[in-house]
Simulated assay, not measured.
Amino acid sequence: MDEKYTNAREHFFAAIRSLAASSDSIQTRLINANANILNVTIDEFDGDRELKFKFAKLLDLLAIDQDDMETVAVETAAHMTDFEAVKVADLICDFYYEIT
Score class of each variant (00 low, 15 high):
64 I>P: 04
39 N>K: 15
36 N>L: 03
56 A>R: 08
62 L>M: 15
8 A>S: 12
48 D>W: 03
3 E>G: 15
43 D>C: 07
12 F>S: 01
11 H>T: 05
57 K>I: 10
73 A>I: 04
75 E>V: 02
39 N>E: 12
5 Y>I: 02
60 D>L: 09
15 A>T: 00
64 I>K: 12
34 N>E: 07
45 F>W: 03
49 R>A: 14
22 S>K: 02
15 A>M: 02
50 E>P: 11
26 I>N: 00
71 T>W: 15
75 E>S: 01
21 A>M: 13
62 L>N: 12
39 N>A: 14
8 A>C: 08
62 L>K: 04
44 E>F: 00
62 L>C: 13
25 S>T: 12
21 A>T: 08
14 A>L: 08
20 A>L: 09
2 D>P: 02
12 F>M: 03
29 R>I: 00
71 T>N: 14
29 R>S: 05
16 I>Y: 03
37 I>D: 12
76 T>E: 10
58 L>F: 01
3 E>S: 15
61 L>M: 09
23 S>E: 14
8 A>M: 07
68 D>N: 12
21 A>D: 13
13 F>I: 13
10 E>P: 02
78 A>M: 05
47 G>D: 08
81 T>W: 09
71 T>E: 15
43 D>W: 13
41 T>C: 11
30 L>D: 01
41 T>K: 13
66 Q>L: 07
6 T>I: 11
30 L>W: 06
62 L>A: 13
72 V>I: 14
46 D>E: 14
75 E>L: 06
47 G>W: 15
27 Q>K: 00
58 L>I: 07
37 I>S: 08
61 L>I: 00
75 E>T: 04
61 L>Y: 10
40 V>C: 05
50 E>L: 12
31 I>P: 01
74 V>E: 10
17 R>L: 10
17 R>G: 10
22 S>A: 04
66 Q>S: 05
40 V>T: 08
64 I>V: 07
74 V>T: 08
10 E>F: 01
63 A>G: 06
38 L>P: 08
81 T>V: 03
35 A>D: 14
63 A>Q: 08
52 K>M: 07
44 E>I: 01
33 A>G: 08
72 V>W: 03
65 D>W: 12
51 L>M: 08
33 A>S: 14
10 E>L: 05
76 T>K: 08
44 E>M: 03
25 S>H: 00
38 L>M: 02
27 Q>H: 00
19 L>Q: 01
21 A>C: 10
74 V>M: 06
68 D>H: 11
4 K>R: 15
39 N>V: 13
30 L>V: 07
30 L>H: 07
54 K>F: 10
10 E>S: 06
10 E>W: 02
41 T>G: 09
74 V>R: 10
54 K>E: 15
4 K>L: 06
